[in-house]
Simulated scan of single mutants.
Amino acid sequence: MFTSHLEEFIEEDLGYNDISCTIVPDKTQKAVIFAKENCILAGTGVAKEILDYFGIKYEQLFDDGDFLVAGNTIFELEGSAISILRAERLTLNFLGHLSGIATLTRKCVDLVSRQSKTRIAATRKTTPGLRRYEKLAVIAGGGDPHRFNLSDSIMIKDNHRNMMGLENAILEAQKRASFTQKIEVEVESVSDALIAAKMNVDIIMLDNMEPSEISDTISALQAEGLREHVIIEISGGISPANLNIFADTGADIISMGSLIHKSRWIDISLEVKE
């Protein structure tokens, strides 16, 4: 994290007249950060940057991606009592939010792994300003981060098709793409999937299709000898409740915005030692 970003977060939390943290004697204090429920841990990198900024010494007992049971200590701390209080909420917010994403991601990864080799991926439906951390939390949970930004790869979506037509959009993307960039096309029909595959795109996303439609589309690509040359991604309306049905369709990737925007914060706490 850039120091300027970290200081913006700290400024937001401390404000201009922090009395609550300064009423305690500024002596050396020990404390622990621990999980109050089972989870997959994420966000320790950000937590360490916050602790370093405030000059707090720490011992890290678990790493991102580790499974924690309620009561496990993540960090043992020692430092200025005032600094520990000032670092507390920001540190816990990141750990709780990111561990929630990692925990939901791991749940989905485990569900799918029981029946197929399909990979679980995130999307760009992230919290503005926090994308890099939320994507890293997906990785900690065993998922794929997908694109970090629009420059990572070229995705042709429904609005591109509506504005310039599918074939024109693909041709323009191919003309302007770097040799390092993949081209992905979002489609909603078998016919468009066949057009995209015949035009040698790298990835086809089957958007908001029912499981039977996905299977039919993949079968059509196989019949044309096109299936092995393209990555099939599916997305839209997929949740842990119906994930097993979509995992049986034969898709390579299942991308889920809900990994982030429907994850639940994990209860993580800081407690000073007497």
Results as ranks from 00 to 15, higher is better:
F67I: 12
G43W: 11
A169E: 04
I203W: 02
S83E: 05
D18H: 02
L166C: 07
D66M: 06
E8G: 10
T28Y: 12
D26P: 09
E271R: 15
T126H: 00
D26V: 07
H146E: 05
S20V: 15
I101M: 09
V46C: 12
T44I: 10
Q181E: 11
D207A: 01
D267G: 10
I203Y: 00
I214F: 00
I23H: 05
L270W: 09
S153H: 08
M256W: 14
M205A: 02
F179C: 10
S219L: 05
F75V: 09
R147K: 08
P25Q: 03
E8W: 03
I231V: 13
K57C: 09
M199L: 15
F9R: 09
N72A: 14
M163C: 13
I195Y: 03
A137N: 08
I101K: 06
F67K: 15
T123L: 06
T249N: 02
G96T: 09
I204W: 00
G165Y: 10
I204P: 00
K107D: 06
R132N: 14
I238Y: 00
V185P: 01
L95G: 11
S269A: 13
K57T: 14
I19S: 03
I154N: 05
D13L: 01
G143S: 11
K30I: 02
N72K: 15
T123Y: 03
G65M: 10
Y133E: 09
D192I: 01
E274R: 14
I218H: 06
V185Q: 02
L206M: 04
E59L: 14
T127Q: 07
I40A: 03
I19E: 08
E78Q: 15
I195H: 00
M155C: 06
H261V: 07
L95A: 14
G129H: 10
L68G: 06
S239P: 01
D52T: 15
I101G: 05
A140P: 08
I139N: 06
E88D: 00
I40R: 11
R86T: 04
Q29W: 04
A31Q: 00
V46N: 09
K30T: 12
R176C: 04
Y58S: 10
K57G: 13
A197W: 02
G141A: 12
D13E: 14
L14G: 09
N72E: 12
E224L: 01
E228I: 01
F62Q: 03
A220P: 07
N149T: 11
Q29G: 00
I260H: 06
A247D: 05
R147V: 00
G100A: 04
T118L: 03
F62V: 08
R106K: 15
A35Q: 01
A31W: 04
N38Y: 02
Y133T: 04
H160Y: 05
S4C: 01
S189N: 13
E8K: 14
L98C: 10
F94C: 03
M164Q: 11
M164H: 00
N149Y: 11
I170T: 04
L111N: 01
A173P: 05
I120D: 04
